[in-house]
Design a protein around this nucleic acid. Sequence first.
DNA 1: CTGTTTTGTCAAAGCGCTTTGAAACGACTG
DNA 2: CAGTCGTTTCAAAGCGCTTTGACAAAACAG
Lengths: 344, 344
Amino acid sequence: MTLKDLAQLLGLSPTTVSRALNGFPEVAEATRRRVEAAAAAQGYRPNSQARRLATGRAMAIGHVIPLSTQHEMVNPVFADFIAGASAVYARAGYDMVLIAVADADQTRAYRALRAQGNVDGVIVHGPRAGDPRIALLTDLGLPFVVHGRASGVDLPYAHVDVNSARAFERATRFLLDLGHRRIALVNGLEEMDFALRRRRGYERALVERAIVPDPRLLISGEMTEAQGYDAARRLLARADPPSAFLTSSLLSAMGVRRALWDLGLEMGRDVSILTHDDELGYFRNGAEEPIFTATRASVRIAGRRCAELLLAQIATPGAPPVAELIEAVLVVGASTGPAPGAPP
Amino acid sequence: MTLKDLAQLLGLSPTTVSRALNGFPEVAEATRRRVEAAAAAQGYRPNSQARRLATGRAMAIGHVIPLSTQHEMVNPVFADFIAGASAVYARAGYDMVLIAVADADQTRAYRALRAQGNVDGVIVHGPRAGDPRIALLTDLGLPFVVHGRASGVDLPYAHVDVNSARAFERATRFLLDLGHRRIALVNGLEEMDFALRRRRGYERALVERAIVPDPRLLISGEMTEAQGYDAARRLLARADPPSAFLTSSLLSAMGVRRALWDLGLEMGRDVSILTHDDELGYFRNGAEEPIFTATRASVRIAGRRCAELLLAQIATPGAPPVAELIEAVLVVGASTGPAPGAPP
DNA sequence: CTGTTTTGTCAAAGCGCTTTGAAACGACTG
DNA sequence: CAGTCGTTTCAAAGCGCTTTGACAAAACAG
């Protein structure tokens, strides 16, 4: 069933049918109703390829997910981000196209996307410091929104990010206030911009209290349960072990917790844990009451906002890029307590 | 830069340029080289919408991910599945389109996909017993591959699944051989077909040894850390607690492990845990040596096979549907041991 | 009742590509 | 050297839609 068929069936021209279905004003109300009824009855759906070619709009948003060859892993927050974004796209009639690209091919991939015109815009995932993709996309004139930020990029660009530095600064202060002086940071890969920011926030809070950050308390790596476990085992075996751990993900926090158990230490009493929590749907930090004290910010909401910003940008090409910073909430759970031996 | 532009530039007709670039034989080798060089120099990329309209092929695969409104969560295995599938699509020049659809709209969504023609085929995720989508898609004539199976569907349909029943049967036998008699099953939501199959395998192994499955040892729910924890706390508080837990996911297993710690029980000695492991990239079961004894089958590989089967099906429309069963491997870790008090 | 506007409809062009059918050109055959 | 054939190229049609510009028909004004 094509537009032409439907038009013929109704004794109308394709023009009128098209206009009727697309809500143009210059079509008689009676005709519109007749057309709509026939379309529904016939189960008519405009062919999207044809429509796209005719309008010049792809009605699709690309998500380019970087696949590092070394650690070829799809970020686990991705699923939740997607869930947030897809609802927005669905409502606006956009498709969501996933494009997994090896790190080395990024530039080529974006150029191809632009030239082939199969997306109207892209979401940039996993930005790094000075990420070249921002300049590239700006140059290509392909609308984009970055999930996160890229330090050292001067150009203005649209992005949605959690205020990581602030969150980790507050988290560190919270631990300092509890009397902790040796606080370990179990961070993500510091190639990633968010990890850098988190570190900066952590260091800022320490310096503010005249504590020199100890590089031996800094761990950086893939945020897994094993990472947290290994880090904690290693650091707690030292002569001057940390009394608190600040971790970048719930998984890492769980790893630290396991290490504490192995060592017969009690979480929240002997050693404190404070983690960042992305509020992943399948991985909650306790139901009512949080298990871990955490800085909390929903990745799903970030996904939604990214999508909304991108669609707005596509709708209004001239507008200046919008940036949005999400403040994390510090929720107190059972994993933190006063540093052992600290004055009350 | 359009095909016409490029043709004009070369003093050739669009026809010839098109054929040269698409590898048709009736073009002189010298001309082809000339065209290819010019295309590369100009950075020419055929507009995908136009190509799609002309060829009638969408060059895209749809992944419809069901979003239950109650527990609106994207399955965490999804990210890994995608990673496996996307590599296949990329190599074949296909796009991957994600379509998140509320449960209620499934039928409408598939019909729309078909009528709009924006995908050449779909992967069906999260099949349930007697899943109506299989009949619907067969009826629509839209090529599809199911990730998993749907009990009670008679039609032949292409699918890739782990032999869950067999895996859980073997896992249960393994525990029985260690002397365990009360074995709890912490399963996924039993609306899902794979959960049903796992249960069947578990029950089969018990019955085989003349043990009547105790319904009080059956837990079914969202596979989270909290689920495992809650289930274990509840069951271990009983007068007749289980001596072993069989869980459907590493997350649940971790929850059970936490409960053991809370109760001062040692994993692998006082209580055993055996879990299924999807080998998610960001969530490994130990680096060299597995932490948990597990039935292991990679979701990523399932994703890859699904994609390959679907592309093959699209390439050869007449062919009968292919099914593929992946056998899980039973890897022995530190989480299992002889049942306490059992004869050696 | 004529002239002007508004309203509703349509034919035709165009989006950028593929593909069909025909034509031009040498090369080969008898 | 005419006739045939294989090779290479092209003009034109078509994919299914949107959109421009024109045109009747109806509504209004003078």
